[in-house]
């Protein structure tokens, strides 16, 4: 298992290199010249544009631009916003925990709802419980997140007044308020994840329970809870972990709408605003951090595979 972990970690190096290249080349892939834009658009004097170029190092050879940029990135420096002048790293360090909290909340919702539903359905495929689960899952997958968010706000925020409608409190400020304010956004964001997780787990468990080795476990005289809890679950967890990993990775960049609706100052909002404004250092910084996070999530998923399926460790 240790060599497996080491191999997977070593495999990240080329991947991170490719990511850095892709992010760096964004400067040149974005339409328009950022120096011109900064200097005040088409009316800018050539001297001013040149000055900005020198300031940003855009006049140097490409390779040294890349190496300088990479050196900064490794030290956590992504430069400053072209518009607000604030450093990207300080902005990300306040916004990232916000998005991470939201993802953590929705992950908890997904696990608390998705796992029991998936187990209940998969244990007895074709039963009325299973049909109920399948129905709920279809609704959960079909429901648009923004619509659900608004319904939640309307019902639990405005009518029942159980939860606050907008805003975010940092964990450091008040843990209870932090959790309290995250409930509605987490439900809005976690419902789709819960439904997908339940569907995968249900299918995998039904398949596994039908397998020869589960029959062997029964033939050994193991009690039912051990047959399911040990022999079936470890094998059925694989597809569920895959889906969960994909969803979490997606959420790191996909929380924008939920953040906007609930007024949460996270990474998603920051990134979208930067894209609209062609704020290249911000885009580069945010995308780098998100890409690295996605890579790390995939690593965790990979390592989980290794634990669940010993065959993977050899491959």
């Amino acid at each position: 298992m240790l060599t497996f972990v080491a191999r997977r970690l070593a495999g990240l190096i080329p991947l991170l290199f490719v990511i850095s290249l892709a992010v760096f080349s964004m400067v040149y892939l974005v339409p328009g010249d950022p120096a011109v834009a900064l200097a005040g658009g088409e009316n800018a004097t050539p001297e001013r544009v040149l000055q900005i170029r020198q300031q940003l190092g855009l006049d140097q050879p490409l390779i040294s631009q890349y190496l300088n940029w990479l050196a900064d990135v490794v030290h956590g420096q992504f430069g400053s916003s072209l518009f607000t002048g604030r450093t990207v790293s300080s902005e990300l360090s306040t916004r990232f925990p916000v998005t991470a909290s939201l993802i953590l909340g929705s992950l908890i919702v997904a696990l608390l709802v998705g796992v029991p539903l998936g187990l209940a359905g998969g244990m007895r495929p074709g039963s009325w419980v299973d049909r109920g689960v399948t129905g709920l899952v279809s609704i959960g997958i079909a429901m648009p997140g923004f619509w659900l968010a608004m319904v939640l706000i309307l019902v639990f925020g405005l009518n029942l007044r159980w939860f606050p409608v907008r805003g975010y409190t940092a964990f450091a400020v008040s843990p209870t308020d932090w959790a309290y304010r995250l409930v509605l956004p987490s439900v809005a964001l976690g419902t789709l994840m819960a439904a997908t997780l339940a569907r995968q787990l249900r299918g995998a468990l039904a398949d596994v329970l039908d397998s020869d080795y589960v029959r062997t476990a029964r033939a050994k005289g193991l009690p039912a809870r051990r047959v399911v809890g040990k022999h079936a679950l470890k094998n059925a967890a694989m597809p569920a972990v895959t889906v969960l990993g994909l969803q979490v990775a997606y959420l790191f960049g996909g929380t924008v709408i939920t953040e906007q609706i609930f007024g949460i100052p996270g990474v998603g909002t920051y990134l979208v605003n930067a894209i609209i404004g062609q704020d290249v250092p911000v885009i580069q910084g945010a995308v780098t951090v998100l890409a690295v996070l996605v890579v790390l999530v995939n690593l965790v998923v990979d390592l989980t595979y290794g634990y669940l399926n010993p065959k993977v460790r050899v491959a």
Binding site: T216, G221, L222
Partner: peptide
């Protein structure tokens, strides 16, 4: 069920056709 469980794998055992799929790959 409990009485049956006590018999299985104890006084009454069974082996199956396909040994490739009859053992749990995860243990």
């Amino acid at each position: 069920d409990e009485g049956m469980r006590r018999l299985r794998g104890n006084e009454l055992a069974m082996i199956f056709q396909d040994p490739m799929t009859s053992l749990n790959p995860a243990f």
